[in-house]
Simulated assay, not measured.
Amino acid sequence: MRLTQLLSTWNQPKKVKWNDVKFSVLASGSTGNACYVETGKKRLLVDVGLSGKKIEALFKKINRDPKQLDGILVTHEHSDHIKGLGILSRRFNLPIYANAKTWFAMENQIGKIPTDLKFHFESETIQTFEDLEVESFRVSHDAVSPQFYVFHSQGKKLTLATDMGYVSDRIKGTIRDSDMLIFESNHDIDMLMMGKYPWNTKRRILGDQGHVSNEDAGEALAEIIGDQTRRVYLAHLSKDNNMKDLARMSVQQTLENRGFQIGEKLSLYDTDAEVPTDLITV
C-alpha cells in the first residue's frame, strides 16, 4: 500500500457498528436516577427519577432525543426512580414495563397511563426487544417488588444493579463477568453513623433491605468482576453520606487488596445526580 493510501486510511473515522450497545447513566443518586441504553434497533430508558424537564435536558447533553425512545423499564416505585415517569410516558407516548406488584404500588404516583402503554415485565424473566435481550433479577430493598436489569446484545453484557440491601449469591451469579457494571456504592458507614439522619433511617440504610456501602460494594465486585469486565460505574451515591472520591478510593482499595489492578484493563468511574456520563459503547 502506498504511503498516501495508508495515511488516508488512518485519517478515516472508525465505523460504528449498527448494532453496538451504548449506554449513559443520565443521573444517579439519592435525588434521582435514570439510565439510557441503546442498540442499533432499540432505545430504552431505565427509571425516570427526575422531572420531565430535567430528563429532556439530560438527553440533550448526550445528543439524544427522548421522542425516539422505544420504552421505559421501571425498577421499583420509590420517587427517586419514578418522579417523571408518568409525565414522560404521556408526553412521548412511551410504553412502560414493570412487574405487576410495582404497577400496583406506583399507579397512584404516576397518574393515568393509557392501557396500551402498560406492559408487565416480571422478575427473573427475559424479554426480547429486537436486537436486545433484557434480563430482570430481584434485589433486596424496601420496595414492594424491586428488580434490576442485565442487557445482552451481540455477546456483550451490561448490568444495572443498585438499591440493594445486600448482594446475594444469586445476584452475583446473574451479573458475573459483565462487560460493564453500573453498581451501587451508596454510603460510607462512618459518615452515615456520624451524620444527621435519625437512628431509624440509619438502621434502614444499613439493613438487608437498604443500600450497599462502599466497603460492601468492593467486596461484592471482587466476586463479580470477570475477565471481560472493563468498566465499573459507582452509582446511587448518597448526597449526605458519601463522596465520589471516597467511594472510588474505598472500592479501589478493596479490589486491589483482592488482587485486581485498577487503571489497566479495569477502570472505575463516577456517576452524578445531575451530569450524565458519556455515551459509551459496551
Rank of each mutant, 00 (worst) to 15 (best):
R231L: 05
Q209S: 09
M243Y: 09
E56K: 12
A222K: 05
Q5N: 11
H81G: 05
E130L: 14
D142Y: 11
E122Y: 09
P95L: 09
M191G: 11
Y36D: 02
I224F: 05
G86Y: 07
R91K: 15
Q209A: 07
D116T: 15
N99F: 02
S136F: 04
G49M: 10
Q68M: 08
F151E: 03
S250T: 13
I126S: 06
S213N: 06
S145R: 02
S8L: 13
A235C: 08
G173W: 02
D245R: 12
A98E: 01
R230G: 10
L7A: 13
Q154W: 03
A98V: 03
L7E: 11
D169M: 12
T254N: 15
F119I: 08
K53A: 13
L266T: 14
R2A: 15
V232R: 03
Y149F: 15
G259T: 14
R2K: 15
E56S: 15
Q127P: 00
K15I: 13
S24I: 00
D65P: 07
G195K: 04
K42N: 05
M1N: 15
G263A: 10
D47V: 10
N200W: 09
I55T: 04
Q147C: 10
S79A: 14
M180F: 10
H81T: 06
T115L: 15
K172T: 00
F59M: 10
T9P: 03
G259L: 08
R204Y: 08
D278A: 14
N257A: 15
K101P: 00
K101N: 07
K61A: 14
E124R: 15
K53Q: 14
D131W: 08
L45E: 02
K41A: 14
A273R: 06
P198M: 08
L50A: 10
K53Y: 07
D177S: 11
T174A: 13
K156T: 01
V37W: 02
I224A: 02
H81W: 04
G210H: 05
F59G: 02
D131E: 11
K83N: 06
Q68Y: 05
K42R: 11
S140Y: 10
G111Q: 06
V134E: 01
R2L: 11
P198N: 09
I126R: 09
T159N: 02
I72M: 00
Q253S: 15
V16T: 09
A217F: 00
D131A: 15
I189C: 10
T115P: 07
G226R: 01
F23Q: 00
D179N: 15
F137M: 13
F23V: 05
H81P: 00
T128M: 07
D190C: 09
Y149K: 11
G173L: 09
G218I: 03
G32R: 00
K61L: 13
H78M: 09
V37Y: 04
G49W: 03
T4N: 09
T229G: 06
A247E: 01
Q252S: 15
L255I: 12
A105L: 05
H76K: 12
I113A: 02
R258N: 14
I55D: 02
D240M: 08
S213H: 03
V167I: 09
K118F: 04
G165Q: 00
H81A: 07
I72E: 02
L45C: 08
Q5M: 07
I262N: 09
K118E: 01
R204V: 12
I96D: 01
C35E: 11
V275H: 05
A235V: 09
M180Q: 11
N214V: 03
R64A: 13
K67S: 10
T277Q: 01
